[in-house]
Amino acid sequence: MAKINQTIKPVFLETTGDTLLVKKVQSGDAKAFQQLVERWQKKIHRFAYRILQDSDDASEITQKTFIKVYHKLDTLDEPQKFPAWIYRVANNLCLDEMKRAGRRKAVPLDYQQEHSGSNGSPEKQLQQKELGEVLRQAMMMIPDEQRTVIIFKEYEGLTFREIAEILDESENTIKSRMYYGLKALRKVLKKWNIQHEYLNDD
């Protein structure tokens, strides 16, 4: 196991820029924090938006994340693990938000009817846009923990090892969630009659 850990070197743990900045902030460099914010705020906002699917909530989570980072950065013993750490902070805040709101944003009921009957092929652009919307809705239908893994993997481009570190789970658990997540997503899309329509074109 130790050997594998050495061979698979996570991409983001090598971002020396972050490590350096974190060390600077920890030694009291205020400008470094500003740089850290500039480097990460887009990523965190995008991540929070993908998780919560709400622009205001995402902005709030981003804000909260950096406030927490600001106050807790001293406690980060290994500055090279900053990316996993900040994602974890953001993810936990997102989980809190979801729990607080007790929500899973409802998918409109007419979705099924709307899409099951459409045989015609509209313009590609419209199709693409619609597909994006459909995917967005479908993602909200699958369990949160599976969705989180899919987002980390597919959109944030992290390795399974990195995701495992962020979520404090084993790599196998993460892979399992990925598997079931993809399965669940496919099931939802199939129910809406989406999959074939688009995939046969490809």
């Binding site: 705020q41 902005s59 597909l131 999959q195």
Partner: peptide, 17 residues
Amino acid sequence: DTRNLLGSAPEDIPEQK
């Protein structure tokens, strides 16, 4: 297929406050 579908759709990420 499902994975490809995920990558093929554009995403609208609204501006961050």
